[in-house]
Amino acid sequence: MLIMPVISGEGALRNDDNLVLALPRGRILDELMPLLSRAGIEPEPALSDSDSRRLSFSTNHPELTLIRVRSFDVATFVAFGAAELGVAGNDVLMEFDYPEIYAPLDLKVGRCRLAVAEPREMVAGDDPARWSHVRVATKYPKITRRYFAARGVQAECITLSGAMELAPSLGLCRRIVDLVATGKTLEANGLVEVERIAEVSARLVVNRAALKTRPDEVGAWIERFREAVDAA
C-alpha cells in the first residue's frame, strides 16, 4: 500500500464567481480606454500607467478583474480559461487558431493590416509566380507559412519578436510579414508593401467553456461591449 502525495489538479480552473478580462498592453490599450468606459468599466488608474509594474487591476465591478499582458498572451490566457474574456487582434487569433476561443465581436479599434513587404529596389525585378521558396522574417510564422503554402510556395520563417524592418537591410532575409498601420516604418526602412494578407482589428474574445457554463454573465458582457461599439 503506497499513499502518494496527491497531485494538485492543474486542470481545474479558478472556481470562483470572478471574471477576468485580459487586455493587451501598449498602444492598443489607449485606444481601448474609451470603449471600456462606454461599456461601463472603470478600471483603477494604474491600468493606463505604463510605468506601473502591476499586472492585475480591479474595476468598479467587484466581480471583474483586468489583467494586462502581451497581445499574443491574451489569446493563450483566454484559450486556457485563465481569463474568461479578452481583447486580441485577429492577427493573433489567426496565428494561434485555438478552437477554445470565440471571437464574437469586432471592437473596430486597433485597425491595421498584415502585409508582406520587401525592399523597394527588389519590387521591379521580382516575379512572384516563379517562387518556389521564400525566406521571411516575421512574428507570425504560422500565418506566413499558410499564406505562402496556399499559393504553392514554401516559406522558411525566421521568427523575430520585433524590429522586423531591419531584417532585409541587414541581409537576414529579403521579405518580411508584419503589421502595417500607416506604412511609415516600412518607408523609413526602404521597404514597400507588396501583398496584403489580412485586415486586422481588435476583437472581443471569450473562452468557449466559460461562455457555455456561464452563458448569462459572459453573454451580458458581450452585449455591453456590443452596445459600446455601436455607440461609437
Partner: peptide
Amino acid sequence: DPVESRGFEYHTGVGFTLFALGVRG
C-alpha cells in the same frame, strides 16, 4: 448553440457537448 460544427464531422442530427463550471475543455 445552433451553429457549432467543430468535432461533429460525422454527425447527422442533434449533437451535444458536456462542460462543467470551472473546468477547462
